[in-house]
Each structure stands twice: as structure tokens, then as C-alpha cells.
């Protein structure tokens, strides 16, 4: 646990306008709020599509934040991973109760960084992209432009399973943006996040057929948090937009009911 944070104290993150989408249950049953964190290039809308309403229907207040520079949040071309993690901790701390954080893709890495600065009730890492050379080597064509300051290429074929109708997948792919160049570099560098505070239970969810995150990478992340991943074969990287979106979210909420 790191107590001295002189750099963070001397250079606080500049505040920006953040997009937070929400869906709250009709009856507050005292369940913990769930905060969804989209990955690089994705905005809060990816969760607003299906998962937010579904989570609220199951009685959990649901929120999704767009990291700075994504979705309808303010532009942030020089954002760092720390700035993204700050966005997550800010939204989590503003919720009425201790929140559960669900991060997707590189947003799972952002979540892992945020967990070191906010004692979440529980955390779920969906298809986590924890970066490092391995991620880049597995996806050379996607990460090559990023090495030269371009965006990560995220074609529809890589993100969704074949079950999703092609017009839907093309529509989603067209809405994707990009993370800042600095954050992409930091992702490639793959610095290990500090351990989480408050010892939250962590669940890792993914698909063996994910074309961005390899099975070994998934297992390595899960092992880091002392568990095995929960797998949904046949699904693509973007679990929350795929045709079978209902299965993973139901499994996650069942797990939450049990452990949080």
C-alpha cells in the first residue's frame, strides 16, 4: 500500500465534464450501485444499449461513465491512465453507497488502477486488457498504428461474434472513438496496478473466443486476483453488445447478490 503520493498531490488531475448515464430501479431495495466503465474507444453508450436497464430491472442502481475524451465527456487528448482512473474514482465516490465497479477491456485496467484509490464493494473485470507487449503482439495489426500515435484499430470483426447481424456490428463500430495517445502508450507499457484498497472480491469474466484478449491473458489476470475466470464461449470481446448479452450480465449480478 502506497502512502506517499507526492506526484499525485503535486499534480492533481484537472477536472472535466463527465458523461454519466444511469438507470435506477423503481424501488430502492438497498442493493449496491453498479458503475460500468467502458474500454478504450468505447463510451457509456455501450452499456446503455442493454446492460444498464437490465441491471436496474434486477434491482441494482446502474451507472455508466464515459472516460474523458470518450462518448459525451469533454475532450482530453492528453489524458493519462491516472486521469481515467480519477474519472472512475470520482463517479464511484459520488454515488450514495459504496459501489461495485465493472470495467471492460482496457477499462478493466483503468478500474484496477481506480481500485487502488477507492475501496469498491466488489469489482468485475470484463475481457480485461491489462496491456503489455503480449497484448500488442497478439493484435499487431490493431496496435501498430498506436505505436505511431494513431488510434487503436477496433474493427467490428474483432469485437463481436458472428452471431451479431453485420449491420448492427458495423453501426456499433462506427460509433467507436479513441483513447489518448499517451494512455495507449501506457497501456502498451502495461504497468501493474497497485493492489486494491479495502480488499474487494474481484470476478474476471471473458470469452475463450475473444479475438483481442487471449485465454492465457485472461487466466493470468484472474490468477492475479486469486481466482479463475468465468467464461462465455462463443462470444466476442464486447460482451455487452453481443446477441447473447443477457447471459454474462445475469451471471455477474448473480455473483454480486452472493458476494457483495
Amino acid at each position: 500500500m502506497k502512502v506517499m503520493r507526492a506526484r499525485e498531490w503535486a499534480f492533481p488531475i484537472a477536472p472535466v465534464r463527465r458523461e454519466v448515464r444511469r438507470a435506477t430501479p423503481e424501488l430502492d431495495e438497498g442493493r449496491p450501485p453498479v458503475l460500468f466503465v467502458p474500454g478504450f474507444g468505447h463510451g457509456a453508450w455501450v452499456f446503455a444499449e442493454h446492460w444498464l436497464e437490465h441491471t436496474a430491472d434486477r434491482g441494482f442502481p446502474a451507472y455508466a461513465v464515459s472516460l474523458r475524451g470518450h462518448g459525451d465527456s469533454a475532450k482530453a487528448p492528453k489524458a493519462t491512465l491516472r486521469a481515467y482512473a480519477h474519472d472512475v474514482a470520482q463517479v464511484a465516490a459520488s454515488l450514495p453507497r459504496r459501489a461495485v465497479i465493472v470495467g471492460h477491456g482496457a477499462g478493466a485496467l483503468v478500474t484496477a488502477h481506480a481500485l487502488a484509490r477507492y475501496p469498491a464493494r466488489a469489482a468485475v473485470l470484463l475481457s480485461p486488457v491489462f496491456g503489455g507487449a503480449g497484448t500488442a503482439l497478439r493484435n499487431p495489426m490493431l496496435s501498430l498504428p498506436a505505436l505511431f500515435g494513431g488510434g487503436l484499430r477496433l474493427p467490428a470483426g474483432q469485437l463481436f461474434s458472428r452471431e451479431l447481424p453485420s449491420n448492427a456490428s458495423r453501426g456499433y463500430a462506427a460509433r467507436l472513438g479513441r483513447a489518448s495517445t499517451r494512455a495507449q502508450w501506457q497501456l502498451l507499457r502495461g504497468r501493474t496496478p497497485q493492489p486494491p484498497v479495502g480488499d474487494p472480491p474481484v470476478l474476471v469474466v471473458g470469452s475463450p473466443d475473444d479475438r483481442i484478449v487471449s485465454d492465457t491473458a485472461l487466466r493470468r489476470v484472474a490468477r492475479g486476483y486469486g481466482g479463475a475466470p468465468l467464461l462465455f464461449p462463443g462470444m466476442g470481446h464486447d460482451l455487452m453488445l453481443d446477441t447473447r448479452w443477457r447471459e454474462p450480465i445475469d451471471a455477474i449480478l448473480d455473483w454480486l447478490e452472493k458476494s457483495a
Partner: peptide, 11 residues
Amino acid sequence: PFSQFPDFPMP
């Protein structure tokens, strides 16, 4: 940065 609890940021 010096006034808030280290795991609960002020808005």
C-alpha cells in the same frame, strides 16, 4: 489533494 481521505476524493 491534501484535505481529502486518500480513498474518497472530494468532488
